[in-house]
Design a protein around this nucleic acid. Structure first.
Lengths: 242, 242
DNA sequence: TGACTTATATGCAAAATAGATATATGCTGA
DNA sequence: TCAGCATATATCTATTTTGCATATAAGTCA
């Protein structure tokens, strides 16, 4: 193998190359609704429209690394769960030039997004049908989304629905200690349908992912529920996942 | 919005950009084994090693389009089912320069790969654990794989196992008309475990994806099985799928 | 025609699931 | 201190799904 010699003469600039960006879908659940973090574009193209936080991938930077960096720089969030979602690369998806976007999903608790603009998501399909979804502003009117970000959001919701019952998704959206009822509410919101209470309980407890803490919920006007904890320590887990 | 003016002055070459390629995982099933199409690299880097067919994405070409083109140019296959798998972008995964690879999985029948080099896949994990897998040559020895292609193959098998029971995967690996026993053999090979016959039958027939043709298998030395057909016409389906 | 081999159908037990109902528990306010 | 309240938690039953065993059917071949 003469890799060394070959590489000395390799000219990476012979062909025109697209730009590569990461787009972050930051989702949370609150009050029975799904929300996504959106930012108003303050420069062209598509100035004034709403978009997912994104940024270009550095030439020496891994995709997961770029995702974490963009998240930190644009939203201040650090060390949150995120995974690669899908890569959107239609020519023309961005009017500037050819930009291929590697989309990521990040899940955070509603408290972590207190200072950001959240848009309520309206999913116009059931189950895992898929397709673009709408983001609604305060008034309930649909926000105009930049680029193909409506499609990216739809893909994210579809992914969440698919992974919900075999991956530790709900836990990322809750504080470290939570009640089974809270976890069920998260699942119901993501799936967009009601679930049976005893059945959900059994399934969760049988999954081995949960551990009872013995502590009880505080501040209720009725019988408090027991607090549970996720066993795989969601505070440590990061972006992984092929 | 002054998008027009902005775009006239936009300089896409201000930042160094990675190259973007598609890598095709072409899989088939035969004789109880999973096989992948591999090509021997005949030029550096990593000359002599075995790799997935791949190629750079053209500047005006969609990712799905690039996948179909690479498949056609490198293997002669046209119009086969393929879907995007995952994007591999570690800096250093390719020694030439920064190359981000959007990996695709394509499924074809064994007959369609008659003229190509196939490597039997050995999956060292169960279920959907994930991780790189080995490709074995004729003699049964592991082939040395280029770049991160062992990891890409592992991701492809994990994806197939996950989608098998709710997506039309088995049909892509069979001729248009097939017996239930053949379909079950495909499932068993992909999953790496035996399945219950009456149970598999019931599940498939209840799924509504199959239609009995009335015709019977030919050339058996015993009772021939009925031939079934996939309802969504797999010969029409292409790359889709977020 | 009957032995052979596999497809297909049927029957039954075990397990998982949904749903309804009953019981337990902590809070509130008199 | 105690009844009433609201929700958590446990229990029970009907239904569906699944695995496994067995029976029957339908071709080939001698």
């Amino acid at each position: 193998m003469h890799d060394d010699e070959f590489l000395r003469h390799y000219d990476a600039s012979r062909f025109p190359r697209p730009s590569v960006a990461v787009d972050m879908t930051v989702l949370t659940v609150a009050g029975g609704h799904l929300y996504a973090l959106l930012m108003r574009r303050d420069e062209p193209p598509q100035q004034g429209l709403w978009s997912l936080p994104g940024g270009f991938v550095g030439i020496g930077e891994s995709l997961d690394g770029a995702a974490q960096r963009v998240l930190r720089d644009k939203t201040g969030l650090e060390g949150v769960y995120s995974e690669q979602l899908y890569t959107f690369g239609d020519p023309g998806r961005d009017p500037r030039t050819r930009i291929i976007a590697v989309a990521y999903v990040a899940l955070v608790t509603a408290e972590q997004l207190a200072d950001h603009t959240l848009a309520r998501l309206r999913v116009p399909w059931e189950g895992e049908t898929g397709g673009p979804i709408e983001a609604l502003g305060e008034a309930g009117a649909a926000l105009e989304l930049a680029f193909d970000h409506g499609a990216i959001l739809g893909t994210a919701v579809k992914r969440l629905r698919g992974k919900l019952d075999y991956a530790p998704i709900g836990f990322q959206l809750l504080p470290l200690r939570f009640t089974l009822r809270q976890l069920q509410a998260i699942h119901e919101t993501i799936l967009g349908r009601q679930l049976n209470k005893p059945s959900f309980r059994r399934r969760m407890l049988a999954s081995g992912q949960l551990e009872a803490t013995g502590a009880l919920e505080q501040g209720t006007h009725f019988r408090p529920a027991e607090l549970y904890r996720y066993l795989q320590r969601p505070d440590v887990e990061r972006s992984v996942e092929p």
